[in-house]
Design a protein around this nucleic acid. Structure first.
Lengths: 195, 195
DNA sequence: GCACTGTATTTCGTTGCCGAAGTTTCGGCA
DNA sequence: TGCCGAAACTTCGGCAACGAAATACAGTGC
C-alpha cells in the first residue's frame, strides 16, 4: 500500500485533478501544484460525497439537506435549538427555519416554544424522524468508508492529522494582523466560522 | 513532521472537528474517527475557502461564482464552450447559461455562435473580463497558501498524494459491486462525476 | 417601572442552481 | 436526399439558501 508512494511518477496513476493542475501550470506558474492539488481534491471529494449522499438517502424518501438536518439533530441527542443547528450545519438562520418547517410538515420533528426562555424554540426529533434518520444512516457512511478505506489506518490518521493542522490555521481568525493594513471586514466570515 | 504525531494527545491542540467527532462517538461508535475527522475537515475547509473567496473577490466587484466562471474560462486560455465550463465547474448546463448571461451583460465575456458547428457557442473572455479576473486573482490564492503553508513542502506533497489515492477510488464508479445487494441507481451520481 | 442593548427566531425578497422539456444542429445511414 | 438518434445549448418552473429587516423576549442600568 504505502509502497505506492515509491512508484515513479510515470507509473503512478493520475486522477482528474492532475490534469486540471497541469492545465493551469503554464497560466499561473507561481502556484504550488501540491497546494492546488490538495485543495481541488478536497473540493471534489466533498462534492462527490454530497452527491452520493443525495442519491443514497433518496431511496429512503429524504433529500440531502433533510437528512443532514435530522443528522444534526440526532447528534445532539434528538433535542436542540435552531441556533444549535445553525452552528452545526453552518447555515444562515433563515435557512434553518425553512428546513425545520418542511421537516415539521412531514412529521419528523416538533417545534415547541421553550418555557424557560421564551425567545427560544425547542426542536425535537419524533419517532418517525429518528426512524427515517436511522434507516438512511448506513448508506451515508458507506461511501466515506469505501473511499477512505483505500488508505491504511496509519495513513488515515496521517491525513486527519495533517488536515487538523491546516484547519487550526483556518480557525485562527488572523494569524499575523500587521495592523498596518485596516483589513476589511473579516467579521462574519471568520467569527461565524467556529459556529 | 511525523514528530508532531508523537505528542501526547493532551498537549495536541484540538480543532472544531475534534469536538464534533467526540460528540458523535457515543451515538455512532462504529464509525472511524479518522475517516469522520478527515471528511469533516475537508468539508469545513472547502466551505471556508469558499467564504474567503466570496468576500475577497467582492472587493473587486465580483461574486464568487462570477470569479469562478472567469477563472475556468481563463484556465482554458480565454476561450471555451459552455460544455467545457460545465465540466470544469461541475455545474448543470442551465447554470452555465445563467452565469454566462450575467457575465455577458457585464461585458466580461462574449458569446458567439460557433461557425463550424452551429450547435455550439464560443465563449471568449474580453479584455475587461481578463482584467477583472487578474485583479482578483492574488487575493484568492493567498488564503490557500496561508493555510496550506503551515505544512512543510514534504507534508503538502504527502497530503496531496494521500488525497489522490482517495480520489482515484472516487472516480472509480464501482470498485467491488457485491451483487448481493441490488445497489440502486448509481448512474448519474457517479458517471457525471468526471464531468 | 422604563429605556436600552443584545439574543433568538422568523418573515420577506432576491438569487442561483437544478431537472426536465424544448429547439436547433450534426452525423450516420438507407 | 430524407430520416433519425444524439448532442449542445436554452427556456421554464420550482426550490433552497442567503442577507436584511422585523418581531419577540431577556437582562441590565437607572
Amino acid at each position: 500500500m504505502t509502497r505506492a508512494t515509491h512508484r515513479t511518477a510515470a507509473e503512478r496513476p493520475r486522477d482528474w485533478t492532475d490534469g486540471h493542475v497541469e492545465r493551469w501550470r503554464p497560466v499561473l506558474p507561481h502556484l504550488d501544484p501540491d497546494v492546488e492539488g490538495a485543495v481541488t481534491r478536497m473540493s471534489k471529494l466533498t462534492r462527490h460525497l454530497g452527491r452520493v449522499r443525495e442519491q443514497g438517502v433518496a431511496d429512503y424518501g429524504l433529500q440531502k439537506h433533510e437528512f443532514d438536518t435530522l443528522h444534526g439533530l440526532a447528534g445532539r441527542g434528538g433535542r436542540a435549538t435552531p441556533s444549535d443547528l445553525r452552528a452545526d450545519l453552518n447555515l444562515a438562520p433563515a435557512s434553518v427555519t425553512g428546513r425545520l418547517e418542511a421537516l415539521e410538515r412531514r412529521g419528523f420533528v416538533v417545534r415547541t416554544p421553550s418555557s424557560d426562555d421564551r425567545r427560544r424554540v425547542d426542536v425535537e426529533l419524533t419517532e418517525a424522524g429518528r426512524l427515517a434518520w436511522r434507516r438512511a444512516l448506513d448508506v451515508v457512511g458507506h461511501e466515506e468508508q469505501r473511499l477512505l478505506g483505500v488508505l491504511t489506518p496509519v495513513e488515515r490518521r496521517q491525513l486527519s492529522d495533517l488536515l487538523r493542522r491546516v484547519l487550526l490555521a483556518a480557525e485562527q481568525p488572523v494569524p499575523e494582523a500587521p495592523a498596518d493594513r485596516p483589513r476589511p471586514r473579516t467579521d462574519r466570515a471568520e467569527t461565524g466560522w467556529h459556529g
